[in-house]
Amino acid sequence: MSQEKKYGLIAEFETPGAVMHAAEKVRDEGFKHWDVITPFPVHGMDQAMGLNRSRVPLFTLVGGAIGFFGGMLMIWYMNAYDYPIVVGGKPMFSPMYAFPVSYELTILLAAFGTIIGMFLLNRLPMHYHPAMKHEAVARASDDRFYIIIESTDPRFEVKTATTMLKEIGGQNVTQLED
């Protein structure tokens, strides 16, 4: 084995059921930095991996709030403060007429917040991932399922992790180059 730093371990599974039960065991072992690669979405995998719900909605909410209040503030500043104009005998500022624009800005910035949040939380754009070096991983888009445990995990130790992956049914357990 070479001395250079390894990214982690990869193990292959043949069925969605097998990889799901294996994931439950990895979760119960207390690993944090690990992932499952499947050719299609497997229902119940989030629970099997012990994942919490995505935090993207938080970004959406913040984006939406900025859009709404930013829109109101902008219209108040332009129409009632910086350059007041009377239009149709209406008040200089009213949330009534400011509402449609603020609403549109809410939607726009909520969408921006969602996209930005998704990119940040997924650490995108990611042009390279060590799993790409693994020859068999092309099959992860076809008929094979993989579990990767990263060496950065505090509980990671090559020998024990390898034994564990084999015990839970993993085949071709190999190390991933970084």
Partner: peptide
């Protein structure tokens, strides 16, 4: 409905 009636006045 409210907004259009408010605006047209």
């Amino acid at each position: 409905q409210y907004f259009l009636i408010w605006n047209a006045n």
